[in-house]
Nucleic acid binder design. Structure first.
Lengths: 309, 309
DNA sequence: TAATGGGTTGCTCATCTGAGCAATCACATG
DNA sequence: CATGTGATTGCTCAGATGAGCAACCCATTA
């Protein structure tokens, strides 16, 4: 305890008063080496806390752990911030996207609240000439901002590129209709383009009533409940998967329009963005079943992923 | 803003990842000198915040300002701590007292909640052979801990010294009684001893109903109200003073037993301990009217004192 | 166009600092 | 009382760092 007191005095003189270890040693009548050692201890024990306070701050240590644990190629973890988790994560995703090298010529994107936030966070001119293509059937087909189309448009426009929208509902009522739509020349071409994209940017939804699919009328709350009962933890590109990453309902999946999940698994750049505790389960599945190569999320989610089971 | 982002990345690599400025420069493709400059800026602008988290931490910068502004010989300011201001301040006062050089042979003390806390914070053996003498009339005359006597005893015992108690009420009903008490050989001797002490340790009370004098029945709430109306901001050694440090009610003062305030003003070591916003006014008066040479208080109080007016 | 001046950049050099090591100390054990 | 063991101390030395300076950029002004 008395040693602690000395440590505190040393830390104050060093960090607050900007004195050299020599000076402090002379002042407190201890050797400068002891001063150095006390400072090291002070940092280690947390008596001296150094934090980086900034909206763009990250958690490099956690990122390393996550990359290691889930064999990702990269991870971006932002510190928790009261009431601004999504914004922070979206900003980080936008930063990461803008810094991607080589710059992808074509970028496949999903849609949803998270992706919209990422699009909004991208600065004008974040890249030059990037083609954006939708990965799965979308909500509104008009090009005004707000919907699935708008988000893709925004990302493309700000990179001075083109957006290719997938003109199809997310989930069809009947398999035949879905097959008919996929048979359409335009749609088939777009799906091909999507499958050939050099990078993917997507989020995921939880398997509960708050799902965007319920909101948009593709599924009824009861449907989602049933999926959850059958083991679904959430959806990626509209496809509901269980904790192991397997399709929960092949029938439903056959009626879902969009790129296959296996395409994501083989992609060099599959950037998965998620924020908030509601998505911890689906996030775990995405990282453990190899659906993404890069994870962008908040600290709480990252820690939840690192916890055993 | 983009520059900010770079600053944040540099700060993370330096402080979180413990990389050298050289390495960071290579990593981010900037010169190591720019890295150093960004780090300096990061610290200056508060992007990097370094704080010392410890019950014994102090605010050296504020202390310097306070010493400067009020021409004190020393100041001890502790960081604000939710719900533990008094404990922190008391601990700091105890530390300061124990570190006093030369060690005072006799120490004059007042009483009250603050002083009791200081006494409790002193470690066994904080000094060797210090005589403690009460400065003003006290509450209980028994020697058990808790009251004015106990506090003096505690301080003395833990220094292996003797306590000299002032066997008198704080304020007498009639001047004559007070004079009679002061005429008593024992009392006179003690007051002389008190006036000759090499160091003083005292606190002060606010001029409101929470005053210890009201609690102990020496004054009625109405009396204090009246004093406040006449300009009193609080009491030091039982003597009520206005913002300029002048006695508010000479009549009352003549009935108060204890060392005179002028003695404090001429003392080499007059250590004033105070905590809490209720005492800001009296604290201001004490430091501005030269009643103390050393101030021990919390950060909020210190900042209040530094504010204009 | 030339000159001016604030801000930035890269560099030298002196100083500061941490890693690693041998000497010493504290203390429990035989 | 000797001995071993782990922690602590002071030190050397190489590497890291900040102060200070000259060069340079770039925009404004004469």
């Amino acid at each position: 305890m008395d040693d602690d007191l000395l440590t505190v005095r040393v830390a104050e003189l060093y960090y607050d008063e900007a004195k050299t270890q020599d000076e402090i040693g002379a002042l407190l009548k201890i050797s400068r080496w002891k001063v150095g050692r006390l400072l090291t201890r002070a940092r280690e024990t947390g008596i001296v806390r150094i934090e980086i306070v900034h909206p763009r701050a990250r958690r490099l240590g956690l990122e390393r752990e996550i990359v290691e644990r889930f064999a990702l190629s990269d991870a971006v973890i932002v510190p928790d911030e009261e009431d601004a988790a999504l914004e922070r994560v979206a900003q980080a995703a936008a930063d990461h996207l803008a810094a991607l090298r080589p710059v992808p010529r074509t970028l496949g994107v999903s849609w949803g609240r998270t992706l919209t936030a990422v699009a909004d966070a991208l600065p004008e001119g974040w890249a030059h000439g990037v083609s954006v293509v939708q990965l799965n059937g979308g909500v509104s087909l008009n090009r005004r901002s707000g919907g699935a189309a708008g988000l893709a448009m925004t990302i493309a426009q700000r990179a001075g590129g083109q957006a290719t929208l997938l003109p199809s509902p997310a989930i069809l009522e009947r398999v035949e209709t879905k097959q008919a739509i996929e048979a359409d020349r335009t749609v088939a071409g777009i799906l091909e383009q999507a499958a050939a994209a050099q990078a993917y940017l997507y989020s995921a939804g939880p398997a509960d009533a708050s799902s965007a699919h319920v909101e948009n009328g593709y599924l009824k709350p009861a449907d989602v409940e049933e999926l959850a009962r059958r083991g679904a933890v959430g959806d990626v590109l509209g496809r509901y998967i269980d904790a192991d990453g397997n399709i929960v309902d092949p029938q439903l999946d056959a009626r879902t329009v969009g790129v296959s999940l296996d395409r994501l698994r083989t992609a060099k750049q599959a950037i998965f963005v998620t924020a908030g505790s509601a998505k911890h389960d689906i996030a775990r599945t995405v990282v453990t079943s190899g659906l993404c190569s890069v994870l962008v999320t908040d600290e709480t989610t990252a820690r939840a992923l690192l916890e055993e089971r």
